[in-house]
């Protein structure tokens, strides 16, 4: 029986893998079947993960279970649970309340209330990002770009080698010219336009390198699947 399940497991994964690959030939019923399985399995997977990790793991364990037990004990006259320790955080009820408001979308008459938790999430994300992005994406990056040219740190003297000096110059030039390119409030003409053009070349290198990097990561996934088909499934690679 164990051998049967081992074979079934291998054949199932191979069936699904080849089903997806069959799209490379053309759209076909096998691909559509595996695509439908993928959609259902993915949605179900994330449903289960978010239920157990986020709802149960955070809210239920962190506040919900204790609160419900306390209320039930009060209502039934049973012995109340001991006072909450530091692991209980009643502020988690705010999240549960927001989540409940979001579920009101299922009730057409009062579905508009579901905009409130959305407004809360958008507002708080905006407030958080306003400062955090400015600090991490603007200030930290600008600081990392404007480093001492000939010293490894301020006050250490001339201790950098030629490679590091050239590298620092390239990073400064590329970042500065790239930012000039993104500045659209002034016409890209003259020296400004020339600097912007240099910026375009740096951006092209960035896009090219990122593209190459992405291709290689996809290739490694592809190699992994082919390795599965030829190795685990067909046993052609030992």
């Amino acid at each position: 029986m164990e051998a049967f399940f081992e074979h079934f497991r291998l054949w199932l994964a191979a069936f699904l893998t080849l089903g997806i690959f069959s799209f490379l030939y053309k759209d076909n019923p096998w691909y559509k079947l595996t695509e439908a399985i993928f959609v259902g399995i993915s949605a179900g997977y994330w449903f289960v993960v978010l239920f157990w990790d986020n709802f149960h793991g955070k809210f239920w364990v962190g506040a919900g279970e204790y609160s419900i037990n306390w209320v039930v004990a009060k209502l039934t006259g049973a012995q109340a649970p001991p006072p909450p320790d530091s692991s209980i955080d009643f502020m988690l009820w705010v999240g549960a309340f927001l989540g409940l408001l979001m579920l009101l979308r299922l009730v057409p008459k009062i579905g508009w209330i579901s905009r409130w938790p959305l407004a809360f999430i958008v507002g708080s994300t905006g407030g958080l990002w306003l400062i955090n992005y400015f600090a991490s994406n603007v200030m930290v990056q600008a600081q990392a770009t404007m480093v001492p040219l000939f010293s490894s740190a301020f006050g250490t003297g001339f201790d950098q080698n030629a490679d590091a000096v050239i590298g620092a110059l390239i990073i400064f030039l590329g970042t500065f010219s790239g930012l000039v390119y993104f500045f659209f409030s002034k016409a890209h003409t003259g020296v400004f336009g020339g600097t912007a053009r240099v910026g375009v070349f740096f951006l092209m290198i960035t896009f090219g390198a990122s593209f190459g990097y992405t291709v290689m990561s996809r290739m490694s996934l592809l190699i992994g699947r082919i390795d599965y088909l030829l190795g685990d499934w067909l046993g052609m690679i030992k």
């Binding site: 603007v138 990056q141 970042t175």
Partner: peptide
Amino acid sequence: DYPQTAGQRAIMIGIGLGVVSTSLRVI
């Protein structure tokens, strides 16, 4: 490490400034 990082930094700074202005507009 170098030209890609330089371009990436320009993009990141641009994104940072964009997020700041969009967040302000939202708030």
